[in-house]
Design a protein around this nucleic acid. Structure first.
Lengths: 111, 111
DNA sequence: ATCATGTTCAACCATGCAGTTGAATATAAC
DNA sequence: GTTATATTCAACTGCATGGTTGAACATGAT
């Protein structure tokens, strides 16, 4: 897993339309026109979003006849998942250690 | 957890500088000038990055004297983590079900 | 061959973002 | 009060992004 992979994956996931597309693809493969249907967007816009998702490795497009079928690639999520899981645990244990050290309640920094 | 929270969190995580800042903050709280030191960036740039991180709920800034001390907030990661974990499991089991149905190997869609 | 369909590509526009610099603000030190 | 320090704010630049539209391309249908 390299730096720019995470950049692309997190960036791809930061857009609600793209997350909705992923949700939709989780129900099974679909063509682009089929995918763009529920969105108030042009066809080309959805195609671009799919480009972003594909570039991040989250979906795969297969040319089948004159249409292009998209399917999800869960493996790419693992990179992001691994990063998050590690950091969440790491940060939490770090902070707990600090709290124990200081003997302060964890919320004394809220504004 | 709401839509725009995820937008902000994923967007905040999509930048390598911001992830590096988070990594650094995991080692303990730090002031902004201290944080900006290792980066080839202006002070203001790092301050902006911290603004993004704060807006996403990932860090908290506390005014302490004339300096501003930043500390990490692991709780905000949970939203993203939850999203990812759910989808990863969901997608994977979905695809395994489809593969079993079709009886095809999982990589017959690679280009 | 022609036509319709699914998709991409290119050009364009508006907006947002990462970066800069310099001025402004707040607080500590003298 | 003056000066130095830590930070923000505002204005600006350059570039990426998300959106549009219309032309181009590939393929299936007639």
């Amino acid at each position: 897993m390299v730096e720019h992979d995470l950049n692309r994956i997190f960036h791809a996931l930061s857009d609600p339309t793209r997350r909705a597309i992923l949700d939709r693809l989780a129900a099974g493969e679909a063509t682009i026109s089929h995918l763009s249907q529920p969105f108030p967007l042009s066809f080309a816009a959805v195609s671009k979003h799919l480009g972003v998702l594909e570039h991040a490795g989250l979906v795969m497009r297969e040319k089948r006849g004159r249409e292009r079928v998209c399917r999800i690639n869960p493996a790419a999520l693992e990179d992001a998942h691994t990063w998050l899981e590690f950091h969440e645990h790491f940060w939490t244990s770090r902070l707990e250690a600090l709290d124990a050290l200081v003997g302060a309640s964890p919320d004394n920094l809220d504004e």
